Amino acid sequence: MSSGFLGNDASFMLDVVVSALVLVVPLLAYSLYTVKVSHNFVRHKNLQLLLAGVLLVAVTAFEIDMRLHGGWVNIVNKDPSQPRLDASQLDEVRQILYIHLVFAVSTPLLWGVTIYLALRRFANPPVPGAHSRLHKTLGWLSTIDLTLTSVTGLWFYYVAFVG
């Protein structure tokens, strides 16, 4: 099993996803700045599509990695003869993972709908219009959801591999 690059023995792809989770929130904030303050709707659109694409690729590769290694428990406890976490610790990490999965599953669904509707209902290049009010609501819900995905994902990573 390949080791990651963040100084512990998490998998390479897990480290890639964690790095993406760290980078996505500031990039998301910048995207919001471009639309709210700069009124640069094209840049906002392009940043959102870039973020969605990068996260889609990273999460897909991560899911493949999870399947290849037999799941997260096998990645956490690489050496069954010397497990990193005992059964009670694994239960705690599992509970954190379940909290994370609530957001990790809802985020692509909500964000996907937000992007799909924006691409269908805004002009090209994008300008404010009849869809703006719903888009703003969906966008903020997606932003909160994605931020919680990042926070809970980092929490899981910390408990499973660092703490």
Results as ranks from 00 to 15, higher is better:
Leu55Cys: 04
Ala118Asn: 11
Lys45Trp: 00
Gln89Phe: 05
Phe122Gln: 09
Leu68Lys: 15
Ser19His: 07
Ser31Cys: 08
Val18Ile: 13
Ala130Phe: 03
Tyr33Val: 12
Leu14His: 10
Glu92His: 15
Phe12Pro: 07
Leu51Ile: 15
Thr107Gln: 12
Thr114Ser: 13
Ala87Thr: 07
Gly129Met: 03
Ala123Gly: 14
Val35Arg: 06
Ile115Phe: 04
Asn40Val: 03
Thr107Ser: 15
Val57Lys: 02
Phe103Gly: 05
Ala20Gly: 12
Gly70Glu: 11
Val18Met: 12
Asp65Thr: 05
Ala118Ser: 15
Asn124Gln: 09
Phe122Tyr: 14
Ala87Cys: 00
Lys78Ala: 15
Leu28Lys: 02
Leu68Ile: 10
Arg84Phe: 01
Gln95Leu: 13
Leu110Asp: 03
Lys45His: 00
Val25Lys: 01
Leu68Cys: 10
Val93Ile: 10
Val16Arg: 04
Ala20Glu: 04
Ile115Gly: 05
Phe12Gln: 09
Thr114Pro: 02
Tyr98Gly: 04
Ile75Phe: 08
Phe12Lys: 08
Phe103Trp: 09
Lys45Gly: 01
Val37Trp: 05
Ile96Phe: 00
Arg94Gln: 11
Leu55Tyr: 09
Ile64Thr: 07
Val22Trp: 11
Leu117Pro: 01
Lys36His: 14
Phe122Ile: 02
Pro128Arg: 06
Phe103Met: 07
Leu90Gln: 05
Phe103Ala: 09
Glu63Cys: 14
His44Pro: 06
Pro125Asn: 11
Tyr98His: 14
Ile99Tyr: 03
Ala130Asp: 14
Pro83Thr: 03
Asn74Met: 10
Arg84Gln: 08
Ser88Asn: 08
Met66Tyr: 01
Asp15Trp: 09
Val54Cys: 00
Asn74Tyr: 04
Leu90Asn: 00
Glu63Trp: 04
Ile96Gly: 00
Gln48Asp: 02
Leu47Trp: 04
Trp111Arg: 13
Ala118Cys: 09
Gly70Trp: 06
Pro80Glu: 11
Val113Trp: 07
Glu92Ala: 14
Leu109Ala: 08
Asn46Ala: 03
Ser81Arg: 12
Pro128Asn: 07
Leu50Asp: 02
Val102Ser: 06
Thr107His: 12
Lys78Pro: 08
Val76Pro: 05
Leu28Met: 15
Trp111His: 08
Gly53Asp: 00
Ser38Lys: 12
Ala58His: 05
Gly112Ile: 08
Ala130Ser: 13
Ile96His: 06
